[in-house]
Structures are given as C-alpha cells and as structure tokens.
C-alpha cells in the first residue's frame, strides 16, 4: 500500500498544481489509531495528509456530489461502482470527476481486531499482508486476510470499474462459488428464527442514522425518516419504527447497493445492516442478473420497466 499512496500523492499534486481540479477527496489519518477519515485538500501543501491503507473503509463516492467545479477522488473498486451509480442517477457528471482508481485488497474489520484486546489500541501499522496492532497490554501481529471485513472477503470487484488513472497495478479478481453464503443461511431459517434474527439484529439500534449518512446512496435532500408531513415512520425507539427504517432504507438501496460496507463501518452499535441490503442484492442478481454500478449507461432494474422483467410471481 505504500507505493500506492506515493502514486496517489504524486497524481494529486500534479492535478492541484496544474489547477486541473479544485480539490482532491481522499483519506487522512483519524484522531485515533486504526482509523482514517475523509478529507478534501485544495492545496498542494496538504498533499502529505493524504493516506491510504487497510482502514479506509468509508466510501468517498459519498462526498463527490454538489460540487460546481472539477474534483479528483480516490476510489476503491466499490467506490467507483458508487460513482457510476451517481453518474447514472444524475448526481454528478462524468467530466466533473478525475477518478484515481485504487485496486483494493480489502479493508480490515476493526471491530474484530479490537475484540482481540481488552484495552484500547494505541498503534496500528501494516506491511503487505502483516498487520501490527499494539495496545498498552500487548502487541499482536496479524495476518490481514484473516481480518478482512466480510464484504471485502466476498468482493467480486476489487478493481475500479471506472477511472482516469490507477494508483497501482490491477489485482486479480476472485471468483466465488457462492457469493451469498450469509444470505443463504438466513434464507434457510424458519420464519420464527428469521424473525428473531432480525429482531436481535436491530434491537440495539439507536437510530443515529450513521449508516444512512455513510451511505453514498442516501443523498435525498430530506430523508423519509426526517419528513413530518406526511410522517412516513415514527421517530422513537418503537420496534416497528426501527424496523421500518431499516427495511425501507434497504428497499431504497435495492439494485443500487455495491456492498461497500460503509454502513457497517459507520455503525457505532456494530449492527450488520448489510443483512438487509445483501438479501436485496442477491434477489436483484437472481431476478435481473444485475450488479450495481458496473454500467454507466444502464439504470438499476427497479428504476426501469422492461417487457422482459420477470413476472413469475404474478399468477
């Protein structure tokens, strides 16, 4: 990843220096170890603040909307797919963007790593596949492949699907026999177990909407949960309302979600909200053969009507 950040900085410098873009959107180190946060730099002197490593789990496509001029953005495979979705959905024009694509080997599951330690992590570094994590009590060297986020382990589009420049060589894409083992497991449950599974899943939700805010798909000026006339959903902690929020957010993402994992990354309560979105991703794939964000010329299947749409469910 080191060579990659050099290339990112080099490209960004050139773009800013020549005035080709107004700003570069990338990652900077966070305020705590093993964390990065999005940053927009407008000056070449801030170039060194840009970083890229296995903790850059947020989706920068979320920050490219509503700019007047041209911007550059650092984008992993999933980020580029969301950029495609943005272009299709009229949120940004292709010629407004300079996409610095990063072939990605996956982001780490911070919760899983943190759970190895009883106290706070004070230092994190990586070298290739080796992660070194330190707390006041101990130091661990971990194998990155064992600590990838689940969405990264199941990722089929590690390489950027759209870009102007690459920050590293393309990586080999994996093929999976079963890309949705988690969904299949839930599908196999009895209705009661399934009901319980989702009850347990959302019971800790505090409705902070961090998942929504991290999601590049959630760009509505007024989200349905915030609307009071009509009030689509109650505002409190009522189970039905909490579930309604999650169901509907998932529905809104159907056929558009790239499974970038930003929602789960952002969740302070460690709720795997991808249980909702992935089921819909699988359905959309099964029904329409569709994966979101691969084609700049096509709208998601639920946005369009075609006489060939599957209609076996209509009797």
């Amino acid at each position: 990843m080191n060579t990659c950040i050099n290339k990112i900085r080099e490209l960004s410098f050139e773009l800013l220096d020549k005035g080709e873009v107004e700003k570069v959107i990338g990652f900077a180190n966070g305020t705590i170890p093993m964390a990065t946060s999005p940053i927009a730099i407008t000056s070449t002197k801030d170039i060194e603040t840009l970083v890229f490593n296995s903790t850059c789990g947020l989706n920068l496509a979320n920050y490219i909307r509503q700019h007047k001029g041209k911007i550059a953005v650092i984008a992993k495979g999933c980020d580029t797919r969301n950029i495609v979705t943005h272009i299709v959905e009229n949120q940004v024009q292709r010629d407004q963007l300079y996409i610095i694509g990063v072939p990605c080997n996956g982001m780490i599951d911070k919760t899983k790593i943190a759970s190895l330690f009883e106290d706070d992590i004070i230092e994190f570094s990586e070298d290739g596949n080796a992660l070194t994590v330190k707390s006041a009590l101990k130091e661990e060297t971990l194998n990155k492949t064992d600590y990838l986020r689940q969405n990264c382990r199941l990722c089929l589009h590690k390489n950027p699907v759209i870009y102007d420049a690459l920050a590293a060589d393309l990586v080999e894409e994996q093929t999976l026999e079963s890309p949705y083992p988690d969904v299949k497991k839930i599908e196999a449950m009895t209705p009661d177990t399934k009901w319980q599974h989702f009850q347990d899943l959302t019971k800790n939700c505090i409705r902070c909407y961090a998942c929504r805010n991290a999601c590049p798909l959630c760009y509505c000026p007024t989200c349905f949960v915030d609307e009071s006339g009509p009030q689509w959903v109650g505002k409190g902690q009522n189970t039905t309302d909490v579930n309604t929020f999650h169901f509907l957010r998932a529905f809104h993402c159907a056929g558009r979600c790239t499974d970038c994992g930003a929602c789960v990354e952002a969740c302070p309560m460690d709720i795997n909200v991808r249980d909702f979105t992935r089921k819909l991703n699988k359905d959309v794939f099964d029904l329409f053969g569709w994966e979101a964000g691969l084609d700049i010329t096509k709208r998601p299947p639920l946005d369009a009507y075609s006489p060939d749409d599957p209609d076996d469910f209509i009797k």
């Binding site: 349905f224 689509w232 109650g234 039905t240 309604t244 169901f247 509907l248």
Partner: peptide, 10 residues
C-alpha cells in the same frame, strides 16, 4: 408504497 403496508400493520 411499501410504507403503506408497514403502517397498516403498525
């Protein structure tokens, strides 16, 4: 809208 269904159930 799916919201109608959910709110009827609610």
């Amino acid at each position: 809208s799916p919201k109608f269904i959910l709110s009827a159930l609610r």
